Simulated assay, not measured.
Amino acid sequence: MNPFFSQRPGVNRRRNEHAALAPPETAAGRTQRGIQSVEVGGRLLLALAQARAPLAPADLATTSELPSSQAHAYLVSLTRLGLIKRDALSGRYEPGPLALRLGLLHLAQQPALREAVPRAAALAQTLGCSVALCIAGPQGPTIVRYEHASLPLHVNLHVGTVMSLPGTSTGRVFCAWLAPDAMRAMWKNQAAQRATHAQRDAALEPASDAAFSATLDTIRKRGFETGIDAPSPGVSSVCVPVFDEAHALRLTLTAIGASASLDVRASGAVVRALRDAASAIGAAAFPSTSTLPCPEQAPGLRA
Rank of each mutant, 00 (worst) to 15 (best):
A124S: 14
K188S: 15
R172A: 04
G268T: 06
T63P: 02
A58M: 05
M163N: 10
H247W: 04
W177P: 00
R14T: 05
G257T: 05
A88V: 11
G29V: 07
A285S: 14
G137L: 10
A51V: 06
W177H: 11
L216K: 08
G300I: 05
A248F: 06
A280K: 13
G34K: 05
S130L: 01
N12E: 12
A20R: 12
A47M: 09
G42A: 13
N156W: 04
R184K: 13
V155P: 02
R250F: 04
E205T: 10
A19V: 01
F243D: 01
A124L: 08
G234L: 08
G10D: 12
H72L: 11
A27P: 02
A124P: 00
V155E: 11
L100F: 00
A246P: 00
S130D: 01
S130W: 00
L133W: 03
P97N: 14
R8V: 05
S169H: 02
N156V: 11
L100Q: 10
L75R: 08
L104G: 08
P241R: 08
M183Y: 10
A246C: 09
H154G: 05
V117E: 02
L113M: 10
A202M: 13
Q7K: 12
T254D: 03
G103K: 08
P3S: 11
T252D: 05
I228Q: 08
F174H: 11
A266K: 14
A28D: 13
F286E: 02
Y146E: 06
I84F: 06
D201H: 10
Q32R: 09
A179I: 09
T254M: 01
A136D: 08
A266W: 02
V117S: 04
V117F: 10
A56M: 11
S90C: 13
E115Y: 01
S267N: 15
S69K: 14
A230K: 11
V270K: 02
D229E: 09
D263M: 05
G160K: 10
L274K: 01
A136E: 13
H247C: 08
A73H: 10
T218I: 02
R30V: 03
E65V: 03
P67W: 01
H247N: 11
